[in-house]
Nucleic acid binder design. Sequence first.
DNA 1: ATGAAAGCGCTAACAC
DNA 2: GTGTTAGCGCTTTCAT
Lengths: 376, 376
Amino acid sequence: MHVGSTSVANRKVTVRDVARHTGLSVASVSRALSGSRPVTAEVAEIVLAAAEELGYQPDHLARALSVGRTSTVGLVVPDITTPFFSMLADAVERVLRKEGLAMLLMNAQNDPEWERECVELLLARRIDGLMISPTHQAKSARTVQEAASRLPVVQIDRYATAKVTRIITDPLQTIALSVDHLREQGRSTFAFVGAESSASTAATRLRAYERLMADDPNGSAARVLTGRFTTDWGYECSGVIVERWPDVDAVICANDLIALGVIQGFQALRRDVPTDVAVTGCDDTLFSAISRPTVTSVAQPLAGLAEAALEALQGQSQDETTKLVSLAPTLHIRGSSVTQRRRRTRTSMPDKRSFNGAAGHRSLASGKARASAPDE
Amino acid sequence: MHVGSTSVANRKVTVRDVARHTGLSVASVSRALSGSRPVTAEVAEIVLAAAEELGYQPDHLARALSVGRTSTVGLVVPDITTPFFSMLADAVERVLRKEGLAMLLMNAQNDPEWERECVELLLARRIDGLMISPTHQAKSARTVQEAASRLPVVQIDRYATAKVTRIITDPLQTIALSVDHLREQGRSTFAFVGAESSASTAATRLRAYERLMADDPNGSAARVLTGRFTTDWGYECSGVIVERWPDVDAVICANDLIALGVIQGFQALRRDVPTDVAVTGCDDTLFSAISRPTVTSVAQPLAGLAEAALEALQGQSQDETTKLVSLAPTLHIRGSSVTQRRRRTRTSMPDKRSFNGAAGHRSLASGKARASAPDE
DNA sequence: ATGAAAGCGCTAACAC
DNA sequence: GTGTTAGCGCTTTCAT
């Protein structure tokens, strides 16, 4: 007979088995295993040993039913395919795991109807709390509000018009970081390219820009274009800007995709970025680092948002207040907004990584091209 | 964090409540609600009405404990932040949901150790099946193998060297699609830029290229560079190619990031893509549509992979055979591989969407900007 | 067809 | 400190 942790295919090992095996009671076993109550050191040792030997694996499900908590948090995002949200999901999962919680992720697919279903599904599964970045500011309101009447809920990044805690990145600071940076770079005549999306961030970033430019002597406040959060929209806008506002020397975009489009559009029109016009984006998604030039972008504090969200969720059981947590973003300066001083001789291949934004990227020094020899 | 059990007024409505309310037994209520056994039409009606009236919500958790199934499938991906995997996760979730299953998503963060923890966490939560795209061909093997001894498991996209069902996109076809297309475009002298990653796809795509080029008269089989799955690596390689193999007129890349880097590198070296050299990528991620030129890429059949994975998972309870399912990819032709015939007059802004993809993509004929990717 | 009762595996009183 | 026991909410024999 095999006695090893790798015993397989046999019937499930339960606390009762461990109890029988040790001659102790299920209660003691449970206590020893979970440490919920003090037990003799000796008992603890015996139980642990037996558990190990029998290959006992606690059943999370039964535990959850018993204690009434699942140690699972639901996260609903508008579209997991959008880089920003996959980054957010990643951040949330990391934070949850540190607390021993699991993440049940659902994708609303930008559809408020489906979003509602996601939430209901999650509720049926007895999650302990819900984090949601609502698809639609108005249409998601009811879903969010109703969920909040049944369990702790927080809105993260985006929010709907519901009386439910919001965890966001300060939109004023988001835009201000770009503005200040661009001014430092000597820019003075701005334009803003945003979106008319139902996402709350579309509106808040626009308002932030208007407010910051309220008394700009060059009339930047009026130079605003809103459409979609897409590269295409940005591309279109560059044409409009060149034609309508030829003096503009800096464009602030509400997200990275727009920024990318704007840059490509300018390039197509033979305008150099950043020499002729500087461009910045928001969210600091992958795009900003891999395009050329690389794109200066305002990063949301993802880990911070996730932490704040969890904290709010946990606090919610006691204290019923709805709060607003607004965190500070970070500016990642890259090539699209900084004019190079030193003109490099065009002998060698330009170093693509210039202005790739500080943050710890391992160097690619060797540049060695090895011939293949894959492993199998 | 506590579930709604906090307020007394809102206590959870259970089958017992419905039973009491209707004067029937819990058994009848359960049967009427789940339809597991026949009940009188009258009883059914009464129960449904009462359930509705009391606001009964079935408790998934209790049900799971009772029936022994959770209707939840775990998905472990190497890195949710990588566009390909977020697309895969999306596809999996959609397919699962059609079957009334939920997806518990975990992110291995490219770390085999953490991957192991993910799997264990998932097992403890009693998922019904596990889909995994292993981080490492060798290091993930044990994790996958052991999991498979405890529950149905399938490997999707990537695979480790374990005797566990694999659901993949045919690598030979993947590369062949690019090769054939490029030849049709009049290209004859190829190079391949791949990766030395521990991911199985790195190896399989390389082998596919070598096999397809085995008797290429121009010696394409020997022109292979392998490094990382990154833009930087692609960028480096373009320099190597220009210098070492100046005759190359087509470069096949093992993924889109590499392709992007290769293209940018060529541009920096004043080589025109696609005129001087054509480039293709793999996986058809967002990048391929938003760069310029847009990049031709081989798309994996995501929905198909997800469906096959689920099917294999479900079949696994009965039949114990380990199988290999290999699905066919699709080529998405874009600007990086097709030389424009008509030279457009440079009066107006170039239409960015030209060659934005043929096969089965909604047409963007109008030149009207679309292609959504809502943000934040 | 329906009801009573026995669990699913675990924890939390409540005794000793 | 430890054991006994009663559930968590649901499904499912087993009788009727």
